[in-house]
Design a protein around this nucleic acid. Sequence first.
RNA 1: GGGCGCUUAGCUCAGUUGGUUCAGAGCACUUGGUUUACACCCAAGGGGUCGGGGGUUCGAAUCCCUCAGCGCCCACCA
Length: 869
Amino acid sequence: MEVEKYFDAKKIESKWYNYWMTNKFFFSKPNEKKPFTIVIPPPNVTGILHMGHMLNNTIQDILIRKARLDGFNACWVPGTDHASIATEAKVVNKLKEKGIKKDDLTREQFLEHSWDWTEKHGGLILKQLKKLGCSCDWNRTKFTLDKDMSESVIKVFIELHKKGLIYRGHRMVNWDPEARTTLSNEEVIFDEVETKIFYISYKILNSSEEIQVATTRPETIFGDTAIAFNPDDKRYLKFLGKKAIIPILNKEIPIIMDSQVDLEFGTGCLKITPAHSENDKLIGERHKLEIVDILNDDGSLNELNLQYSGLDRFDARNKIVKELSSIGALKKSEPYTTKIGKSERTNCIIEPRLSKQWFLKMKKISEPALSSVMNDEIKFFPKKFKNTFRNWMENIRDWNISRQLWWGHRLPVYYYGPEKDNYIVAENIDNALELVNQKKGYELLKKEDLVQDNDVLDTWFSSWLWPISVFDGIRNPKNKDFNYYYPTNDLVTGPDILFFWVARMIISGHEFKKSIPFNSVYFTGLVRDKLGRKMSKQLGNSPDALKLIDKFGADSVRVGLLFSAPAGNDLLFDESLCQQGKNFSNKIWNSLRLLKSWKVSEKLKECESSAIASKWFDSKFNLKLIEIEDHFKKYRISDALITIYKLIWEDYCSWYLEMVKPNYSEQIDYVTFNNTLQYFKKCLKILHPFMPFLTEEIWSLIKEKKDSPLIVSNWPETKPFDIKCLDNFKHIKKVITNIRKFRNENSYSFSKKLEIVTKSNFNNKFSGIVLKLTNTHVESKKNKTPNNKNSIIVDSKEYFVLNSFESKDDKTKIRQELDYNIGFLKSIQAKLNNKKFISNAPQNVVINEQKKEKDTLEKIRILESKLSE
RNA sequence: GGGCGCUUAGCUCAGUUGGUUCAGAGCACUUGGUUUACACCCAAGGGGUCGGGGGUUCGAAUCCCUCAGCGCCCACCA
């Protein structure tokens, strides 16, 4: 049968994906087999596929396909995340383009726009995953705002509230003035920025003296409620108990002492603004200071700020500095480098701000999670993240779970009473009403008397339940799916969401199911460009994922990504790696062409060299298979791939096929042909998780009737290998390599004949394989012969010892080994002058492990004498 | 400031409990090669005081100390 010269990935990818889908090979239902489960880290619903997704999902697909071949009931649950703040920010922008402000809309109208957006852009990324070949169970696709998922979230909130773990508190939070919501600490990114530090003096009441403070935020002076210095700071003792006057505002504030003030920094005096700094708030609490919030939600100054009311905080800063300067209160300003927190999503500078928010107590519920990671019940790959994890868990803070947004799960909290300052937590308004009425026992309330909290939950408050809720394990803890698939096996994700997501899933697993949510976590690295830079839009160094697939084929891109993706290390991606993948595809494709071109003869006998080669490859395969399994066990996916890559390219193609392939116009014996076919099939099986399309295509061209499609075939069994056979072949290879080397170095052309003769026991010292050169003029170049002490020139013109043994130890054994090699070489000899075989012509010289052996013996001797002393 | 990690060939990285898989892989590089599976190829080859210094040991890339450089996480000074 004619097979096309080049492998065309494009032609076959959709064919096979459709085939797998129609035959429901990705779909999983509980059965008698053992489950193997992965839940996808749900990408943002409006996201598009980027390199990070490609890497992450390729790895998941490899694990799932491997498990499927291993005979597990493999289930990979896909889905998307509503991504509360990220999506809302996008919708707000979209509306802005249309000239619509969020404030002009009702909550319901805004949500309609958001759902619109979600329907238009959502799920695109899942389609893109299909292009990559991901074998997800698409019937199980979930979205964090699905009805059942939302109900689970609400149920969990209520449960935690009942346990007393959720509380409402007036706390210092990170305020994003653009999105006008709070953020958790994890959502704030600190960047170093060049700014200025201002030295401002405050007059002392009834005195001509002044007290000076240093601040980077002069616009907050109207929120000052004290000035503090360190008790050890003698300079300011005289001011203790006196009052300072805030410039411009002319308000009197106390001067206090607090050991938290750093006497080295600035002037040693600190203005205290309890409403806008965590630190100041703590000092404020100790001294019972007034709290003055000077900001509006959008970051502008509020009505307490005199003529500056309504100005944006940064405009106000400039103007206030100007005025301070004009009245002589500004003593100096200096350049200053500090770190400023920005919102991860809107990139807006964060305001620390006191605000009433909902929190989840973390300390207690995180304890079992910490220990399950530390004792390796959940394994982290690579291990180093255990420490990072511990560090965070041991210093865990309460989780701010409320957000002043509309897109998300609205808090199931209902306020009532004349001031609406009582609240009840309930599944819905009807429940709430019932509960309140039961509670009060008098004057029944109506629905209208209840007001639901406007806030939504942090987006991670739904995704922390993901491994449980995708199987509906919160609402129906006894359901079949949940009990079958949970806990899941592997989680594959980036270390950037270790705290956001991974840690919290482990916590929720323990809290709600008294078990771990997954057994292993594989942390992928960041995909960078080949210069090591992060991929970014500005640099334009982020390749379009789909274009790559289009150009090289999905298989090649998958392989290209993995060629440099050790777990947890960032990987430097370069398109050329995809090219390498494509070349690999072509190499395999060509072995198919070779096999297909053979004419098989039932009559021909298997020749000696083919028999030896087959036996060797069998052992080699089994040896490598054990290595590959080990790599998988340790989640060294790239190493597994590289091992397979070398096994196929080097061992199967370059050595094995070259040795057994018949000479031009000759036929191949059936035994050998069948061996090559069976080994080829085994190679396809182990490569399938990495290159699913190519392998399935080739499989379909060589499979026998009894074979199932590759995707649902079986991973080869691990079998023992013959170490002696491998050793022997190693010698043979070395001999051949050295003969080739000899040819190369001596420009001994292929047209010149080489003859191998055997000889043993000459000099009573060495046995060896001897290469006889005929028709040659090597004497002038004899010094270029193998630079190995044990290769000796027996005859300056004709003989080289290719392999030598010390015969004193085990003559028989050595003789056997020698005979084996010689027998093999003899069989190759016949092919030496065949043109067909030229490129791989088995030729030349030397093995020597003698020196090492001697060293080792010496070492052992020393050790022994030491021990006996 | 607290915690963690890294430094091995030109590049990206393996190297498990110190010693026969210990100096490795892939890519890149050099040289030679194409009428017969494959130039998207074949063959051969050259590259490393294992960041510096010191120590433990019969023996160190591997363990300890120290110095230098790089990176990550957390907290944060106004």
